[in-house]
Design a protein around this nucleic acid. Structure first.
Length: 770
DNA sequence: CAGTAG
DNA sequence: AGGCCTTACTG
DNA sequence: GCCT
């Protein structure tokens, strides 16, 4: 099928990442309540696009698509007149609009095309439909009259897609007075189009000729060779700031004019005897224009990532150290070195864009419009959390540093679900705690009834959690992403009356009670539960006596109480100890790590995830014999009381690797100081993990689920794939996401390294509550 | 496909 | 009205 | 549930 070639894909992602960064970095948190959704959409569409075969970028590259590009300002005067929004139709673009290759030769699009009235002409469907959301009118709360849409009421379909640029608040117009010339200088490419839009929103003027420009923004991927001819054509190019597309993005993020000479912005854009590097002084009035912003210079891009020496894994109380797997790095580390840094920084921005998608609402503190940014968002959460987290967060810059200062590695990635560690407590002392609590109840209730609705509620909760103030009115709530009329009303009701009628009402309904009861039975899902309810069963006894039960369900019912009870931390440890001891008699070199919520530091767990590993193992199979012996032994001991799911010798293509069952803490292992002993059945999962997959498995089995999803999504967005076995690259997928190739293993044994390769900051297990 | 998992 | 959804394994 |  239409499998894009890897190179193509990578190129695409590069561009995509650029836009994502742009999208998210800066105004991200500006009050555009809709922005979030738009971005989500964008991201989403972009994603699917990439998976299919028609990335917009690609189409631009390969075909003679009838370009529907708007044109730079005819009269770059820097002023923000309504002209800015003139939609101009351009004839088919030259192949120049493509990127990545050295084909800037035929660059300059023909800007002298006739200006077609927006109402006239066909309404060609932009190839980059995925971009629409970005180009769509933004719903800014700004009251100012900065709306540049000069079209009265007549808004053709086209205009809708293209125009209405709204300037950001002044303090965000870091580019005011600057004139940008892009290479290629058109917006046929969706990514670039968005970049341009963003730049303009920040006050930049998009000019049509190199001559007029103060800044030359070169697409990522192009090299000096590519742009050489362009530059030569303009004698004044030597005085211009020539940077790659990351530059404006970063400036936007930091809301400041950064030093354009940084290596990362000019990489490959200069040659030994190339036009002198424009000095800061050559910066047009720009710098001054943005007087309220500090100019940063020489800020060495400290994007450690990998050079960032990883502190010895402080396994401390969370999970036991397996080994110094940090040093026993596999030879697969090669990819990291050279390429990555460059590549990574690109992906990072992309990642960030995802955050929005990852239901990581932005703290939208409208009041503090001045600076509502990742930082603040971060602070908000940090601040609301118990101090015990402080230590772990110390690495994060403490409060106060204004992002405007472009403070170092405020790595924009902090906004990510997977980078942001939520902590339970975060919910407690949140101003919206009460609301969240009730909404959570709703989630619980809908748990298996309506997954989508559930999702919406969760999303709302996430949004609320991010708020630093209590949301009391529906109107307020509606502004948050993911909160619509219905939820808003509920939120208001909760705030006003302290309760939610619908919830109370629903909870009263016997069917729901019963349904939820059934759902708590191990092995019972919504489907089965519903059937039983409709069949008239009301109690567990009914089921036991009349219903047809699977083995697991029977166990689930017989030990209903036990299995639904939380397991105190100490018991988790005690249980693990029992297993360790038994294992010691079988193979002393096998190691155990308790994963799950235990590893995240939870005081109690719903079940026990025990990762079993051993040095030198390369496949779960290597541990199978051991596990069999172990299980046999523990079963004989009476420790293991039931097998709910074991490695199937059947259809498993050699990956059988886990054992699910129940266990009971023997009295002999029961701490005397814990009162009187009582055998309680506990759910336990034994997971076979070869050393080579240890890191990946650790992530996987540490969770939480949201975190896992996030980080996986992040991986997939980078063209990588993360599963419980490792981080892979070059994954080939066919239709329907069928994976043809697993791809090459990048890293599997080192947890930290996976983080690094993914370009995300390391997060201690206890910071993975999302 | 349903359920379970993180 | 209909999509929304991370990946993988087990039964 | 929200969103297009």
């Amino acid at each position: 099928m239409e499998e894009r070639e890897l190179a193509d894909k990578i190129a695409y992602f590069k561009r995509l990442s650029t836009i994502q960064a742009e999208e998210n970095g800066d105004d991200a948190y500006d009050e555009e309540e809709k922005a979030h959704r738009e971005r989500c959409k964008t991201f989403h569409n972009a994603t699917s696009t990439s998976n299919r075969a028609k990335s917009p970028a690609r189409s631009v590259t390969g075909s003679q698509k009838a370009g529907t590009a708007s044109q730079p300002l005819p009269h770059p005067d820097g002023s923000q007149s309504s002209d800015d929004l003139e939609i101009i139709k351009v004839t088919p673009l030259n192949p120049s609009s493509r990127l990545g290759a050295a084909g800037i030769a035929d660059k300059t699009p023909n800007f002298d095309e006739e200006i077609v009235p927006e109402s006239a002409g066909p309404d060609p469907k932009p190839a980059h439909s995925f971009l629409h959301p970005l180009l769509r009118p933004r719903m800014t709360r700004q009251t100012s009259s900065l709306t540049l849409d000069n079209s009265p009421s007549t808004s053709t379909a086209k205009r809708k897609k293209q125009a209405r640029l709204k300037l950001l608040p002044e303090n965000q117009q870091v580019f005011r007075g600057l004139r940008f010339y892009y290479i290629p200088n058109d917006d046929a490419n969706g990514v670039r189009a968005a970049q341009i839009t963003k730049a303009r929103e920040r006050g930049a003027t998009w000019v049509r000729t190199l001559k007029e420009a103060t800044h030359v923004i070169v697409d990522i991927g192009l090299t000096y060779q590519d742009i050489k001819s362009d530059l030569i054509s303009d004698s004044s190019s030597a005085e211009k700031v020539i940077v790659n597309a990351n530059y404006p993005i970063d400036c936007g993020i930091h809301r400041v004019i950064l030093d354009p000479n940084q290596e990362k912005y000019v990489r490959n854009l200069r040659v030994a005897d190339t036009p002198p590097v424009p000095s800061p002084s050559s910066l047009p009035a720009s710098a001054q224009a943005s007087n309220n912003l500090l100019e940063i210079k020489g800020k060495q891009h400290k994007r450690p990532r990998k050079d960032q020496e990883s502190p010895p894994r402080t396994q401390s109380d969370y999970g036991e150290p397996l080994q110094n797997n940090t040093q026993s790095l596999a030879p697969v580390t090669t990819i990291a070195a050279a390429s990555v840094d460059d590549e990574l920084s690109q992906y990072i921005s992309l990642v960030q864009g995802n955050s929005l998608y990852l239901e990581m609402p932005l703290g939208e503190e409208e009041e503090d419009s001045a600076h509502s940014e990742a930082t603040q968002d971060d602070e908000a959460e940090t601040g609301s959390e118990s101090s015990e987290d402080e230590s772990s967060r110390k690495k994060k810059r403490k409060t106060g540093d204004k992002i405007q200062l472009g403070q170092e590695d405020t790595t924009w990635q902090d906004n990510f679900a997977c980078m942001k560690g939520g902590t339970r407590e975060g919910t407690v002392d949140n101003p919206n705690a009460a609301t969240i609590e009730l909404l959570q109840s709703m989630v619980d209730m809908y748990e298996h009834q309506d997954a989508w609705r559930c999702k919406s509620y969760r999303r709302a909760i996430t949004a609320l959690r991010q708020q630093t103030r209590k949301i009391t009115t529906a109107k307020e709530a509606m502004k948050l992403p993911g909160i619509g009329k219905s939820l808003a009303a509920k939120i208001e009701e909760i705030a006003a009356e302290g309760r939610l009628r619908k919830l109370e009402h629903a909870q009263q309904r016997p069917e729901n009670k019963i349904l939820n009861l059934f759902l708590k039975v191990y092995g019972v899902g919504i489907s089965q539960a519903n059937k039983w309810v409709s069949q008239g069963y009301r109690t567990l006894e009914d089921l036991q006596e009349k219903a047809k039960l699977s083995t697991n369900q029977r166990i689930g019912i017989e030990h209903f109480e036990d299995l639904n009870e939380r397991i105190p931390r100490w018991e988790v440890e005690a249980l693990a100890a029992v297993i360790r001891e038994a294992a010691g008699c079988i193979d002393a070199s096998v190691e155990f790590i308790i994963g799950g919520s235990y590893r995240r530091g939870s005081d109690s767990s719903g079940d026990i995830d025990l990762i079993i590993t051993k040095k030198g193992t390369r496949s779960p199979q290597d541990l199978l014999p051991f596990l069999e012996k172990l299980i046999k032994r523990l079963t004989n001991d009476g420790f293991l009381t039931a097998a709910l799911a074991s490695f199937s010798e059947n259809t498993n293509k050699g990956h059988g690797s886990k054992w699910h069952g129940c266990c009971v803490l023997p009295e002999t292992a029961f701490p005397k100081d814990k009162g009187k002993y009582r055998p309680i059945w506990r759910r336990i999962d034994l997971l076979l993990v070869p050393e080579t997959e240890f890191g990946a498995a650790l992530i996987y089995f540490t969770g939480n689920d949201i975190f896992n999803r996030s980080i996986r999504l992040l991986a997939s967005k980078k063209g990588l794939r993360l599963n419980q076995r490792g981080l892979f690259k070059d994954v080939l997928r066919g239709k329907k996401g069928v994976t043809y190739t697993e791809g090459d293993l990048l890293e599997g044994r080192d947890e930290k390294r996976i983080f690094e390769l993914l370009g995300v900051k390391w997060r201690e297990p206890h910071e993975r509550w999302c």
